[in-house]
Nucleic acid binder design. Structure first.
Length: 649
RNA sequence: GCUGUUGUAGCUCAGUGGUAGAGCACUUCCUUGGUAAGGAAGAGGUCGGCGGUUCAAUCCCGCUCAACAGCUCCA
């Protein structure tokens, strides 16, 4: 007999060789029917693995990541089986599970695959899934594996085998398909009830562009039809929220081939939005002791030689600007930090001056590879809500706390309610590739961890993800439909203070090197606006939205009264316009609903007589007739209320 | 940058080896209408750019630019 310890610490005595599935059956029928994979002493295993020693056992269903991943990994095998049935010459590379679904990289031997083939593959997968084929594991020797795949003329699996040790090799077979795989897998194919082939794309063999391009087929599967339906609805919803689409519809920004790819043109409404955001942050920063600075868009090559960026990125950047003066070269600025370092150096600093916080909405230019450009999230010219804090080593933690406060203030104000903080630290096994003293690193890493802990942030620690110049803290937010985005970032930098020989005079009358902290709560205005659009689907908070109201005269006879109302509202700093087109009121309402205007003010004979407006709220509808003054206070109060609520959080 | 797909009016998109169409938007006129599309007329396109094949190219071919999907990358 052996002892099995379950997650609730209870134990079971079972015969040696009992499988996790049998234990599941002993617990409940429901669990036995839903279990997909088991964890045996920290190792994921098939449910039919005989347990030979005392073990801790945990069972996973579709509800857990482990269960999902296993189902998707097994689905990749199922898709491979379907592909092999449909395309006899196909060769397989690897087929892992992803965050949402799975893919398989295949070599179609010159054949092609298009979206029109998807249904055929899906049908075949479902047909095979219904056979309830068992995923059968077989441990074999390396030589046997080599023989097997040599017979199959499968160069890709042979390549994989080269890197595997004898004794660790296993094959999985379901139906007519056998794959080299370490597993684990779901018990049988019948758990896969709903199937969708999502996409097909090229991917280099082993991710190396010198290698052959394989066909990567993406798919997703579910244990219930309903879940597939919900997933497809989510994809539809994401499409509707696409900032490129909404940005065009709401006339926020555009691109022009003549201006150049990746160089956004902000339209009046988008500019209003962007500037409101900047004003909002600027105000918060002034209150937190930041000092606004502003620096030119170009700088002498020497600046970037000093910073080290020329050596690292020079060749892949926008190339230098020449002048009539022979040999003189300027570069478009790819970041603001070197400029800020020079500002720091413009006068001697005392320890009493620190921390110094230079803030600038600095527009920078980076020559991103063509294929990387994407709407506003990846562009070649963008404005960072940048600031550099020059601090004493003993101030790192305190400044981190303040920056975290600022970042959270921004997130709350914009209704991002869920976020996690990712702490990127040094690779503990390879400390040599980092610049800066061990002592400083330890202080900074400790400071970050303590600061996030004090703020009760949900954190993930990533070892080895730090930049070579310092550890960092990145904020990942979840948007309204659950997608994750990386927004704000805080980074410690030991490199630039060194390169620019930044100093301050300490209490001991000696020169010391300050620590530099880069931080950007939005990240960049472009990226943030993109994420915000997708988060709120273009329905911006009232304080931010480009037009807070539209006045809709019932007929042209009331245009003059509308004008009077507009003047009154403008005096109170409320933004909007009159829709004085020669259209019926129904048409105007429809159009302004589509334009997502928060408040429509309908004015006709009645309103003109009573000095009122009839409010119609976006989506909600008719809110009745009120005095113009009441509307003004409604707007002001709504905005104040909005901010107050958020302060509490 | 690599692979694939796409590029027709301001927008969304039909279409054809014999130099083009719809809906919306726009202009003018009629209409002055009370909570999601009133009516009529009109204007608008080197069919992304360059080159080739052809009697003839928006359509076929090559190159190029841009967008999209994926890969790789992101100070």
């Amino acid at each position: 007999m052996i002892t099995i310890t379950l997650p609730d610490s209870s134990t079971k005595q079972v015969e040696k060789g009992t499988t996790p599935m049998q234990i599941a059956e002993g617990i409940s029928r429901g669990l036995a029917q839903n279990a997909l994979v088991a964890k045996l002493n920290n190792e994921l295993v098939d449910l039919n693995t005989p347990i030979l020693t005392d073990s801790a056992l945990k069972l996973y269903t579709w509800e857990q990541e482990e269960g999902k991943n296993t189902l998707w990994h097994s689905s990749a095998h199922l898709m491979a089986e379907a592909l092999e049935a449909l395309y006899p010459n196909v060769k397989f590379w690897v087929g892992p599970a992803l965050e949402n679904g799975f893919y398989y990289d295949v070599d179609l031997n010159g054949g092609t695959l298009s979206t029109s083939d998807f249904e055929k593959i899906e049908q075949k997968m479902l047909e095979l899934a219904r056979k309830q084929n068992i995923f059968e594991r077989k441990n074999i020797s390396k030589q046997d594996a080599i023989n097997y795949f040599t017979d199959k003329q499968d160069i890709y699996k042979l390549d994989l085998l080269e890197r595997l040790d004898d004794g660790t090799i296993s094959l999985y077979t379901q139906g007519n398909f056998t794959d080299l795989c370490r597993g684990p897998h779901i018990p049988n194919t019948s758990f896969i009830k709903a199937v969708k082939v999502l996409n097909v794309a090229g991917a280099y063999w082993k991710g190396d562009e010198k290698n052959k391009m394989l066909t990567r087929i993406y798919g997703i599967t579910f244990p219930k039809d309903k879940e597939l339906k919900e997933y497809l609805e989510l994809l539809e919803e994401a499409k509707k929220r696409d900032h490129r689409k909404i940005g065009k519809e709401l006339e926020l920004f555009t691109f022009s081939e003549k201006v150049g790819s990746g160089l956004p043109l902000w339209l009046p409404k988008g500019t209003m939005l962007k500037e409101k955001l900047m004003q909002f942050l600027q105000k918060a920063q002034l209150e937190s002791g930041y000092l606004p600075v502003s620096t030119p868009h170009i700088a002498h090559k020497d600046l970037y030689i000093c910073s080290g960026h020329y050596e690292k990125y020079g060749a892949d950047s926008f190339q230098s600007i020449k002048t009539p003066h022979e040999g003189e070269e300027f570069f478009l600025k790819p970041m603001n930090c070197p400029h800020h370092c020079e500002i720091y150096k413009s006068s001697p600093k005392s320890y009493k001056d620190l921390p110094i916080r230079y803030a600038e909405f600095g527009t920078v230019y980076r020559y991103e590879q063509k294929g990387e450009l994407h709407g506003l999230t990846r562009v070649r010219g963008f404005t960072q809500d940048d600031a550099h804090l020059f601090v004493r080593p003993d101030q790192v933690k305190e400044e981190f706390l303040k920056v975290i406060d600022l970042v959270l203030y921004v997130f709350n104000a914009l209704d991002f309610k869920e976020y996690t903080a990712q702490i990127s630290l040094r690779d503990p096994n390879n400390k040599t590739k980092y610049i800066g003293t061990d002592e400083n690193w330890i202080t900074a890493e400790q400071s970050i961890m303590e600061a996030t802990k004090e703020k009760n942030l949900k954190t993930v620690i990533e070892y080895g993800e730090a930049a070579f110049y310092g550890p960092k803290l990145d904020f990942m937010v979840k948007d309204a439909i659950g997608r994750k985005w990386q927004l704000g970032t805080i980074q410690v930098d030991y490199n630039l203070p060194e390169r620019f020989e930044l100093e301050y005079v300490g209490f001991d009358n000696q020169k010391h090197r300050p620590v530099m902290i880069h931080r950007a709560p939005f990240g960049s205005m472009e990226r943030f606006v993109a994420v915000l659009i997708e988060h709120c689907k273009g329905n911006f908070p009232l304080w931010l939205t480009p037009n807070q109201f539209a006045i809709l005269p019932v007929s042209e006879k009331f245009n003059n009264y509308a004008k009077k109302v507009l003047d009154l509202l403008k005096k109170s700093d409320i933004r909007g316009f009159i829709d004085d087109r020669n259209e019926k009121i129904g048409k105007k309402i429809r159009d302004q609903e589509i334009n997502k205007i928060p408040y429509m003010l309908i004015v006709g004979e009645k309103e003109q007589e009573n000095n009122t407006v009839s409010i119609r709220e976006h989506i909600i509808g008719d809110k009745g007739e009120v005095a113009v003054e009441s509307f003004i206070s409604l707007i002001i109060e709504t905005i104040e209320q909005d901010f107050k609520l958020k302060q509490i959080i």
